[in-house]
Design a protein around this nucleic acid. Structure first.
Length: 606
RNA sequence: GCCCUGGUAGUGUAGUGGCCUAUCAUGAAGCCCUGUCGAGGCUUCGACACGGAUUCGAAUUCCGUCCAGGGCGCCA
């Protein structure tokens, strides 16, 4: 028997056709005489019917029903039969194949399935098994239409990306997976060399240096669907290995790159949804993003903007604010308007947020409520009526509005405020789930300077082109992040193409010449051979698709993800290797001899 | 490394000190049933993550461990 159709194809136009379907038994319903099988594959579900009173000539009912009885759920089976209309009134309008059914004339059990560990039908949300169970049996989890849809969307997404990049004369070039470990940044996954005992390759955190050297190598436009590896702790949007659309262009400025990426997003959008998306995306400077939204990847789907009150309250006799402002800190407020929030947050809720303030990294949280045209608060007595009035005007506070005030050092306070803002939006259900708000975060600093030690760190990475003299008090970097709904989708920049400037930036972040030479000598040398001005970007594919599909976690758009502890519950990796292999690599581990490697990824039984 | 939440039959759950020989659904096994579609009916099977403590008595309280998820740190 050869498959003639998929389980999602047959329609009323196929009536009378002899077909062979192969797939998995999703549900079966035996009525004692007539019996049904829902046969499923990636493409859909087709109803197969066994009808003892309507068998084609020459078909023997007994062996056929015998075989069908052996069809356990999720077994792989092959059936032959005739397409016919369903009995009038029994059509299933929810299913595209629901008008027809296949009257079975032959059946083969290809491969019997054990009783599956969880239900595979289209369930309502919330009745999925625990994620660890899904992961242990991911191949079954993948049979769910939801996962099939995610994999299809991911495939189409990547295909569209390739098409667009190809149409824009980018070359798809593969860069090494085995490369040199670099000192800065995330922890590397290391791969020992057998040929050179004691030496290691590293799996790339990104193809950064290679793509820059491709530009030096005149490739002009490069892209790659690149797998990247970072040995850092996972989050719902971070996995040890993840996928990026990595690209780089020569002889361009920031806008050229942003235009290209906007074109890519619009192209993919059109391809996936058949709709145009509004470009260009809004641009927000780093400082404004931090001071308005408390985030360098602000979610623009809701308001709750912070407004600076530092100037307004600087003369108030409120000692805490005084001290903070004198120390160079800020005071800012957020207005929860009466209609959306102010009325819904009572005194107890306010106390709850105050108690949570520490968790957000805030020193504290102050509130004021607009009552009878005046601002009232437990600390109102420390403010003159004039200052209270000024706050009211600045915050545009109207009757019933609730103001939350935060104060402290610029960065930690705005970041804490951002966390508070997110929490408020969630609690008050202000986030429109189906909205997509893209934005470019621009005008970032080149360095992050530790306020205590004065130590410079690269804000993005040390290959970003500085926008002014490195000795200036403030140095900007020619970098830009693409954000979507409060998530960073990717980040790009113009790169340094002058070897001496590159050395200076390395020095600025605390590397001495010896170190520069050892770790990046080859790269700085490469810049010295006529490196073109260039820049590029990397877009996080997993994040992008998970947001498009409204998934809580990127694990839902990755076929075989790892869990929070970087363990694959399916193949139980990482795992111990034979002593012989370690010996060959001349590796000894310091891990305790008695460590039970079998415990890794071992969930209860077995 | 730290903080928070959770762990009850294969799966999803109820259960806040005795009403627990632990609820319900689904599943599995068996039987019945000729138009269902997550079919239906009947019967049976099957669980308190592990260790310790408190108590006359613990699924329930406490401590520790393990596992999972969310977050902080980390992720140039």
């Amino acid at each position: 028997m050869r498959r003639t159709n998929t389980c999602g194809e047959l329609r009323s136009g196929d009536i009378g056709k002899e077909v062979c379907l192969q797939g998995w038994v999703r549900f079966s319903r035996d009525h004692g005489g007539v019996a049904f099988i829902d046969l499923a594959d990636r493409y859909g579900i087709t109803q197969v019917v066994f009808d003892p009173e309507d068998l084609p000539e020459g078909t023997d009912a007994d062996p056929l029903s015998e075989v069908m009885r052996s069809f356990t759920r999720e077994s792989a089976v092959s059936i032959e039969g005739t397409v016919r209309m369903r009995v009038e009134g029994t059509e299933d309008r929810r299913n595209p194949t629901g008008e027809v059914e296949v009257l079975i004339t032959g059946a083969v059990l290809i491969n019997r399935s054990r009783s599956p560990p969880f239900e595979l039908g289209d369930q309502k949300e919330g009745v999925l098994p625990n994620e660890d169970t899904r992961m242990r049996y991911r191949y079954l989890d993948l049979r769910r239409t939801d996962m099939i849809h995610a994999m299809e969307m991911r495939s189409r997404f990547l295909h569209l990306a390739r098409q667009y990049m190809d149409e824009n004369r980018f070359l798809e070039i593969e860069t090494p997976i085995l490369a040199r470990s670099t000192p800065e940044g995330a922890r590397d996954y290391l791969v020992p060399s057998r040929v050179h005992p004691g030496a290691f390759y590293a799996l790339p955190q990104s193809p950064q240096l290679f793509k820059q050297m491709l530009m030096i190598g005149s490739m002009d436009r490069y892209y790659q669907i690149a797998r990247c590896f970072r040995d850092e702790d996972s989050r719902k949007d971070r996995q040890p290995e993840f996928t990026q659309i990595d690209m780089e262009m020569s002889f361009v400025d920031s806008k050229d790159i942003q235009d290209m990426i906007e074109g890519l997003v619009a192209y993919i959008w059109k391809g996936l949804y058949g709709r145009e998306i509004e470009i260009p995306f809004r641009r927000i400077g780093y400082r404004e993003a931090m001071e308005s939204y408390g985030s360098d990847k602000p979610d623009l789907r809701y308001g709750l903007k912070f407004i600076s009150l530092t100037e307004t309250v600087k003369d108030a006799r409120y000692e805490i604010f005084q001290r903070i402002i004198k120390a160079g800190g800020i005071v800012a407020g957020i207005n929860l308007k009466a209609d959306i929030a102010g009325d819904r947050i009572g005194r107890n809720d306010v106390d709850r947020y105050i108690n949570q303030a520490k968790k957000f990294g805030l020193g504290g949280l102050t509130w004021m409520r607009c009552r009878d045209g005046k601002l009232d608060s437990n600390i109102a007595k420390y403010f003159t009526p004039e200052i209270l009035d000024a706050i009211k005007r600045k915050m545009d506070a109207e009757e019933g509005d609730l103001l939350f005030l935060i104060a402290g050092p610029w960065k930690s306070t705005y970041e804490g405020g951002g966390a508070l803002r997110r929490k408020l939006a969630e609690d008050l259900e202000l986030i429109p789930e189906d909205e997509m708000q893209f934005l470019w975060l621009v005008d970032c600093p080149m360095f992050e300077i530790d306020p205590v030690s004065g130590k410079h760190d690269a804000f993005h990475h040390p290959f970003v082109l500085p926008e002014n003299d490195l000795d200036d008090a403030y140095v900007g970097g020619a970098c830009f992040d693409l954000c979507l709904n409060g998530n960073e989708l990717g980040s790009g920049s113009l790169r340094i193409h002058d070897p001496e400037l590159q050395r200076e930036v390395f020095r600025k972040i605390g590397m001495d010449d010896e170190r520069i030479e050892a770790d990046f000598g080859f790269f700085v040398e490469a810049l010295g051979y006529g490196a073109p001005p260039h820049g590029g970007m990397a877009l996080g594919v997993d994040r992008f698709i998970s947001i498009l599909l409204g998934k809580e976690t990127i694990r839902d758009v990755i076929a075989f993800p790892k869990n929070k502890k970087a363990v694959s519950l399916l193949d139980r990796s990482p795992a111990k290797v034979d002593d012989k292999k370690l010996e060959e690599l001349q590796i000894m581990t310091l891990a305790a001899e008695d460590m039970d490697f079998d415990d890794i990824g071992n969930v209860d039984d077995n």
